[in-house]
Design a protein around this nucleic acid. Structure first.
Lengths: 200, 200
DNA sequence: ACCTGAACACCGTTCAAGT
DNA sequence: ACCTGAACACCGTTCAAGT
């Protein structure tokens, strides 16, 4: 484990992204330190600056890749369901499921240490792609008249807020504190109530 | 501004809580440093340890006071409305309004730097009080049969998740990134959709 | 082009010491 | 009881230097 030849003439950028995610999974997002990531990758504390402008840029890189995974799981869940309504619900459940299955990745989405998303255009683009999946699903529901008409983005915001709120509460352990069993499948019921609220 | 007699024989604990909130409002939660709080209060870097076990305990103290403010605004909004349904909606809108009006306080609720809530019993108690307001409002709705029956906590979770998600997205500037006008009053529409979903 | 070493200005926290 | 001063082991980041 003392040789790191692959990194030294290979892809240190990739290694740093992997190490950052692994550290976040192991120790939590607050323990994630740039020096620690460099240490885990077997390089000096300054080596990361050859690949990322600063710590925030590294976190944004990890977050961006996480958003792609989320988008993939959302589309997979959508494609496994039939009918516009069930598909929208499947996307919502998948969002919450992603947060529970990939805690570290989800927490990194909102790491305030990333700073203004506008300064990370690749991250903003990944957000837009993911949000687009939700928009499409709602448009399909409107076409089948299982969701009421009106501004798609407004409806999407309601849906996003609901699943995002549940995911956030779960990931930050605020539900156990409030006396909920976080192991129980809370998402389907919450998503069904949401869907009822959007119905035509 | 060089004398701090009031603090030295007065309430440094109070001064630290105030300084922490002020710093969080001015510089954001990430810039909030224990040494900086001590500096702002005019004491040495170690003085806070006479009043708080560590940085997390100070943050928990600020969060706890913030939850009391939130609870007060929720009950005020509730009491200004008439009818169980409108009252529930008013509470939800007040939750989001609190996040927008007191950004720093809201962000501190979820500062991961606070750590396990279980280790801050006073904070957990404040959470429980605030959640109780929501529970009571839903029970009142069930009694008037404007919200469907079933486990109150499950219904409350759906409501909490929705307003919490919207508040989080607003406070973390993720809505501008998604092309929403955060200045627009988004809360009423979202809360109405939520309420439709809970309806009897 | 990519990495290291030394350095700077910070942190949170602890310990001994002052009053 | 409450505060200070000095110290420790860390950070993020920069700069010069190596290959």
């Amino acid at each position: 484990m003392k040789r790191h030849d692959r990194y030294h003439h290979g892809d240190l950028r990739r290694a740093l992204l992997d190490a950052a995610l692994a550290l976040c999974e192991a120790e939590g997002p607050d323990a994630l330190t740039l020096r620690g990531v460099a240490r885990a990758a077997g390089v000096s504390p300054n080596a990361p600056y050859n690949h990322f402008a600063d710590k925030a840029a590294l976190l944004a890189g990890v977050a961006e890749e996480g958003l792609d995974v989320l988008a993939a799981e959302m589309t997979a869940a959508r494609d496994a369901a039939t009918g516009a309504g069930p598909r929208l619900e499947a996307i919502g459940v998948a969002y919450v499921g992603f947060a529970q299955a990939h805690r570290a990745r989800f927490r990194l989405f909102h790491a305030t240490a990333i700073g203004a998303k506008t300064s990370h255009p690749a991250l903003a683009a990944a957000y837009e792609r993911t949000f687009g999946i939700l928009l499409d699903a709602i448009r399909a529901c409107q076409k089948e008249e299982v969701v009421r008409g009106g501004d798609v983005r407004r409806l999407a915001l309601t849906a996003w807020a609901t699943v995002h709120g549940l995911a956030t509460l779960l990931v930050e352990d605020q539900l156990e504190a409030a006396g909920f069993d976080a192991g129980a499948p809370l998402a389907p019921a919450v998503v069904r109530a949401l869907f009822r609220g959007l119905r035509a």
